[in-house]
Design a protein around this nucleic acid. Structure first.
Length: 271
DNA sequence: CTTTGCACCTGTTGGC
DNA sequence: TGCCAACAGGTGCAAA
């Protein structure tokens, strides 16, 4: 489920339930995620109060006084707030149990997600050290995109999905933002004009922001419901619409592969 | 340094 | 109807 808007919505959903609460226990049912869940987490966290939570790229950070719990939802992960009496599903791999009888439960059928522990500055963790700017922060703008794309022959869609350039732009929103900017995904990044970079940066920001606004409303009860609910309620300009009529000009939407991922575009509206 | 392709894993979908 | 290949929201990593 998780593109950046879903991760952001998840953060907003779980934060009020966790902040300030003391950890009673940590339950690891299956440690084999993308990387093994540290076995000493129960020992590390029992009795510790949760401080603040934040998002960096698609990682969720749960800060404690002595370190940070790093969560990633991968392709199929979700987090819910439940009570301790709720029986786990076979893909419920990890619980953070709080003293007030509430648990934060990670479900992840494909197990591409991660639960890690880091002491000290998260920005110095190897996974975070080389990340580009947040797409919704002022630092990410047309000028940054313009500079980052100079001399790059790779397709603009791949560059926009490159975490070193800007984080958090997943396959759906890369496709959608490129349509909105009128740029075809195969275009060599280095050929984009400054004006088109400005436009693309603006559309990336707008697309993500609008989706967060939608996710926020459609997933209001996310923490105790499926979470996928709101996801497909959005109507996309191009994503998943192969051979369907472009919503602007009626031309059939095309589908191609780029970097082993599907790209969708209108051959008339995007140049 | 950039670019490309693989790997990890399970559940669902679509074509024959 | 049933089977099986292809595909799915991510991303670190190795190799070229």
């Amino acid at each position: 489920m998780p593109e950046l808007p879903e991760v952001e919505t998840t953060l907003r959903g779980i934060a009020p339930h966790l902040s300030g609460q003391v950890v009673a226990d940590v339950i690891i049912r299956n440690a084999q995620l993308r990387w093994p869940i540290p076995r000493n987490l129960p020992k590390l966290l029992r009795g510790q109060p949760v401080r603040n939570l934040e998002r960096r790229a698609k990682y969720l950070l749960v800060h404690f006084d002595h370190g940070t719990l790093i969560l990633h939802l991968g392709m199929s992960g979700s987090l819910r707030i439940l009570t301790t009496s709720t029986p786990p599903d076979k893909h419920d791999h990890f619980d953070l149990v709080l003293v007030n009888g509430i648990i934060m439960r990670l479900r992840d059928p494909r197990r591409f997600g991660a639960v890690l522990w880091h002491e000290g500055e998260v920005s110095r963790h190897p996974l975070f050290a080389k990340l580009g700017p947040e797409p919704l922060q002022a630092e990410f703008d047309g000028d940054l995109l313009y500079r980052a794309t100079r001399k790059r022959s790779a397709a603009i869609k791949l560059v926009v999905m490159d975490n070193h350039v800007v984080v958090g732009v997943g396959n759906i929103y890369a496709n959608e933002a490129l349509f909105r900017a009128g740029i075809k995904p195969q275009l060599a990044a280095g050929k984009l004009s400054r004006a088109r970079c400005e436009r693309l940066a603006a559309e990336i920001r707008a697309t993500l922001n609008e989706s967060i606004a939608l996710g926020g409303s459609s997933l209001r009860d996310y923490v105790d419901s499926d979470g996928k609910q709101g996801y497909f309620q959005q109507h996309y300009w191009v994503y998943g619409r192969t051979n369907e009529a472009c919503r602007k000009c009626g031309t059939a939407i095309k589908q191609i592969k780029q970097g082993q991922r599907s790209s969708f575009f209108c051959p008339v509206c995007q140049r």
